[in-house]
Design a protein around this nucleic acid. Structure first.
Lengths: 140, 140
DNA sequence: GTGCAACTTGAAGCTGGCTTGAGGTCAAGG
DNA sequence: CCTTGACCTCAAGCCAGCTTCAAGTTGCAC
């Protein structure tokens, strides 16, 4: 049994986040010592799985559905495939974008606007904007 | 010269967004007809460029720095390369994630937790979480 | 038994990129 | 001249995923 401090130390997840996850029903504390939450060691796996899900682009709500009533992971393999496909899609778009950026970086045209490839890229991006409702990729 | 309705129609960007961009200094209206904003046709290129930048993961502030005082694009080629590299990095991570998901989807282990590859993936994801301050990928 | 650091709670705040709403103004059509 | 309705402004709201804050408890060391 681990107290919250120990979970923070071993998972790297801040206490505030642990409380938030518990409130959301993603993890469960098994009791208290005084006020302090006590967690079963299993929570470390659950947190790793949450991290994985987040990295793969699942929302917390979606991740919540990946645990059964007992807190054991029971992941729909279809959902995994679907997410893999979605990732593939994202990857393709980002690759096109990367190639365009790379071209623009070394393109000899005086202004990027005079570069055909750059204009094509712009048009793709703005056409996507017209069609897509909401989709974002952040890179910090 | 285009009024805002025309810009909306031709760019697909909502009027509220145009006003927001103008407020942020990303685009400039060249005057008014009554109350209505009037834009130079150039704004369509600017909007396409903004869409491109957004799709490539630039923030609006970063995109703002890509226009010179006159509103002409003057993009630092180094910044483009750097962004391309960042995209590459993201693409690599997403690819690893996709492969892991795909494996998990067809892995015969009774629980994903018993699958070595899945656990490795989980560990990578949670290790990243410990190290990284803020990085996100949204899909859908 | 007392101090105090570390925990607790609930609510509010933050970031980015917009959207929405209330209330106001104006040009054009009838 | 008057209505209509598309635009305007400014402020507030929304989303996810947290973080931060103020105020309240607590276990443990002394």
């Amino acid at each position: 049994m681990l107290d919250i401090t120990e979970v923070v130390r071993r998972s790297g997840v801040p206490a505030s986040t642990l409380r938030y996850y518990e409130e959301k029903g993603l993890i469960l504390s098994t009791g208290r010592r005084g006020l302090k939450r006590i967690f079963a060691p299993r929570v470390l796996d659950q947190l790793a799985l949450i991290a994985l899900g987040r990295a793969a682009g699942f929302t917390l709500d979606e991740i919540g559905e990946m645990f059964d009533d007992g807190g054991e992971p029971s992941i729909d393999r279809h959902a995994l495939s679907a997410k893999a496909d979605a990732l593939d899609d994202t990857i393709r778009k980002l690759s096109a974008m990367r190639d365009g950026l790379r071209h623009a970086a070394k393109c000899p045209a005086p202004s990027h606007l005079e570069c055909g490839q750059f204009r094509r890229l712009m048009n793709i991006a703005s056409a996507r904007m017209k069609v897509e409702k909401k989709r974002g990729v952040q890179e910090k």
